[in-house]
């Protein structure tokens, strides 16, 4: 079997995600043909089996929106990789108005613009993540794949959402998964419940997919969403 073609493309993030991927390049080339700007020219007009898009999409930059749509069209599986691409991350706070392009006001996870197959939070995800993910996608099933699919459909995820949906909602059992999943140590255990230090949360979303309760809610919600959208297709809404 020939190796799948994989595109790694940054849309204007900090480049931390493509660089973290580069660290597993020696392993990645064994399972895929890799196309990335870090190592040479990339051609967005050819077809790819996988496109790994990093960085947020700037809604006010038509060129970038077009680029993203082109990538979607030309790739079989589109993966939003890293917090900015998958859930927005730190850049959700952007308010525009900065020289020389003050019109770049709104940034969003890429699933707001195109259909995304899998969305992976993490700022940045550890290098090994991509290899595991590709292996799992090939097998095609499992709880975590469902989870990353659900993130693509429901990108509003951050420490604040973890508090709202799980902790303040009384669903937290106090396992401590979130506390061990925060890259900025914004979560601490107080009386066996996580508490958010708001000024430390960068909205990377890692805690939410690590929480056993939230991940379950996400998967369930995405099923309902899919059902609703297929119903609306049937009834022509």
């Amino acid at each position: 079997m020939s190796k799948p073609a994989i595109l790694i493309y940054d849309l204007g993030g900090c480049e931390g995600c493509p660089l973290s991927i580069m660290r597993v390049y020696p392993q990645l080339i064994n399972i895929a043909n890799v196309y990335t700007k870090c190592l040479g020219k990339v051609d967005l007009d050819r077809e790819y089996d996988y496109a790994v898009v990093t960085g947020p999409i700037c809604i006010n930059s038509p060129e970038h929106v077009e680029e993203l749509k082109k990538i979607r069209k030309n790739s079989r599986v589109l993966i939003a990789y890293g917090s900015c691409a998958s859930v927005g991350g730190i850049i959700l706070y952007a308010r525009g108005g900065q020289e020389p392009r003050p019109e770049h006001r709104v940034y969003a996870p890429i699933s707001r613009v195109v259909r995304v197959d899998y969305a992976i939070p993490g700022c940045p995800p550890a290098p090994q993540m991509l290899i595991s993910l590709l292996n799992c996608i090939r097998r095609g099933k499992g709880y975590f794949l469902d989870l990353f699919r659900a993130v693509a459909l429901n990108p509003k995820l951050s420490g604040f959402d973890l508090m709202d949906e799980v902790v303040l909602n009384g669903l937290c059992v106090g396992c401590g998964a979130c506390v061990l999943s925060c890259p900025t140590n914004a979560l601490q255990m107080i009386d066996n419940r996580p508490d958010l230090i708001p000024e430390k949360c960068i909205r990377c979303g890692t805690c939410t997919v690590r929480c056993p309760r939230f991940s379950q809610i996400l998967i369930q919600r995405s099923r309902l969403l899919q059902k609703a959208s297929s119903l609306s297709r049937i009834s022509g809404v």
């Binding site: 204007g12 947020p56 700037c58 006010n60 930059s61 060129e63 970038h64 730190i90 850049i91 706070y93 952007a94 308010r95 525009g96 108005g97 900065q98 020289e99 020389p100 392009r101 003050p102 770049h104 940034y107 000024e199």
Partner: peptide
């Protein structure tokens, strides 16, 4: 060509 993310504006008013 990268979009201007505007971190200088982004951090105003923050801790």
């Amino acid at each position: 060509k990268a979009p201007v993310r505007g971190f200088e504006k982004l951090v105003r008013g923050k801790n």
